[in-house]
Design a protein around this nucleic acid. Structure first.
Ligand SMILES: NC(=O)c1ccc[n+]([C@@H]2O[C@H](COP(=O)([O-])OP(=O)(O)OC[C@H]3O[C@@H](n4cnc5c(N)ncnc54)[C@H](O)[C@@H]3O)[C@@H](O)[C@H]2O)c1
Ligand SMILES: NC(=O)c1ccc[n+]([C@@H]2O[C@H](COP(=O)([O-])OP(=O)(O)OC[C@H]3O[C@@H](n4cnc5c(N)ncnc54)[C@H](O)[C@@H]3O)[C@@H](O)[C@H]2O)c1
Lengths: 243, 243
DNA sequence: AGGCTCTTGTGAACCCATGCACAAAGTCGT
DNA sequence: ACGACTTTGTGCATGGGTTCACAAGAGCCT
């Protein structure tokens, strides 16, 4: 079944499934239905089943999925069987937070190097690791072990640093700087853009506000609720739809 | 024209376009072609034009788009004409970094409150703002001014804090905790999940690695590969395309 | 054994998004 | 004034992803 070609949208959800599965495992559950797992992961059950089918799942009809087996299978697919090396470049405001983040290690990511070029930052020890100058990048990267580079430098330096990472053999980059990175084919870049996220929220908030003033479908409706929604009309919790 | 119904995928790209436009404006350009702007934003030109058409764009054929006019139009759509209030809850590792982030203010987001419940954190002044206990949330939120809540608390407290934000009238939430938030309809949630991003990168890196071991045009696999993929799906070569 | 209940896996319809290709519409040079 | 050139805006085809709905499979109970 699902050897090659796992759809990208599915891949993006696997981490969520994995987290939910771990929660079920911790709670002592031995099996889960697609319904329960989907609920915990915040998606529809049909989507979940289709996603799992893409990687050749082993559910048993009438029962559900074996928690431990499925957890291991997804973990395998996400490469969690081996531990990945991570280097962080730019140990400023954000870099400090990232360097001390426990969510890395618990998911098989090992921070093996911190880099910066600020004279007063280099040499500092952050979360047990010394901050090194970028020149020492080569001493940390092992050719055999694929390494993920995390960029937390100012936007104007991001491309330059990225180039150096790529030149040193990094083929996976997570970019926090609000800029478009250009990389050769074969190199993966994902970006986390905080300002964009806020802007998208603002767009929707604005849309909600203008809608409230001039509602489209029912013009005859009298005063709608002045403040949007009541928090505890909890008849249906309804997961917030995102992308 | 694009009054209502801007596709979600388009909305997600508007911030990128806006950034690229600002760069062109700073460089002194008065007009840009869709080709140039798309290049700067890292998308295809056709996609860009279609996106702009959704919001009723005013390009002139043969010339391109007026930089300033388009910039203002997108800024309007993203709600940047008014300044949005932002509260950050959880002033730990990450919260400190967020509170000090300059990318907020420069895009019309004003941090109006920092909240935490740790005794040694409350009272501390971070980036010019005092850290307050959550109880004072009501004192900061103004009913008339929509406010965006940023969650940087540990995962196990995220839902509880979110509920309190929603109860206080917040209808837009940006969540950094690796957990699924349940909110009533009408509340927007977006999440930033660092660990997931790394896992997705790891997935692709692993795929690249196994592809390298067993290249595509090799129909007759000699012996089973050492460890890579599951035994049951060795069948079906299926010439994969590069991404 | 047989029927009942539960749940998976998936075919098929639908919706959204992407990319192509080109006519319409404008500018610029002569 | 006009033709050549440039670039937008969009119709259309294609593809990916989501959702529905249900038959097939698995356990359980009598
Ligand atoms: N702070 C946040 O909350 C936040 C949030 C989202 C995105 N970002 C983005 O993350 C990046 C970093 O933000 P920050 O607030 O940590 O900035 P910062 O200025 O605090 O830190 C940047 C660090 O990068 C180092 N640096 C600069 N140029 C370098 C180079 N060429 N090589 C190596 N190191 C270099 C600097 O010495 C500094 O320590 C920025 O692009 C910012 O837009 C930050
Ligand atoms: N540090 C990172 O780089 C990073 C990266 C990605 C995601 N995250 C996530 O962001 C969240 C915060 O991470 P962190 O590293 O800053 O953790 P942290 O422990 O350093 O900070 C958490 C803060 O939240 C406060 N807090 C706890 N419960 C609270 C409550 N009920 N009400 C108000 N405040 C409360 C704590 O007092 C503490 O100051 C976590 O969910 C983490 O998984 C962190």
């Amino acid at each position: 079944m699902g050897t090659v070609d796992v759809p990208e949208a599915t891949v993006a959800r696997l981490p969520q499934y994995l987290r939910a599965l771990s929660a079920f495992a911790d709670a002592g559950a031995r099996t889960v239905s697609s319904e329960a797992l989907a609920e915990a992961a915040g998606v529809g059950s049909a989507k979940l089943r289709k996603d799992l089918s893409h990687l050749g799942s082993y559910g048993t009809r009438g029962v559900g999925y074996d928690v431990e087996q499925l957890r291991r299978q997804i973990a395998d697919r996400l490469g969690q069987t081996t531990s990945w090396n991570v280097v962080i470049v730019g140990i400023g405001n954000l870099g400090h937070a990232l360097a001390g983040y426990g969510g890395f290690a618990s998911r098989g990511f090992r921070v093996v190097g911190l880099f910066d070029d600020g004279p007063q930052v280099v040499g500092e020890v952050v979360s047990g690791l010394p901050v090194r100058p970028l020149e020492e990048l080569g001493e940390v990267l092992r050719p055999g072990e694929p390494t993920i580079g995390v960029l937390a430098v100012p936007a104007e330096h991001a491309q330059g640093v990225c180039d150096r990472l790529v030149a040193a053999g990094v083929t996976s980059v997570l970019n926090f700087a609000p800029t478009v990175l250009r990389v050769p084919a074969g190199v993966d870049v994902r970006k986390v853009d905080l300002a964009s996220e806020l802007q998208i929220l603002a767009f929707h908030a604005q849309r909600k506000a203008t809608r409230a003033v001039a509602p489209l479908p029912a013009p005859a409706a009298p005063a709608a609720a002045p403040l949007p929604v009541h928090p505890l009309d909890a008849v249906r919790p309804r997961v917030g739809e995102v992308v």
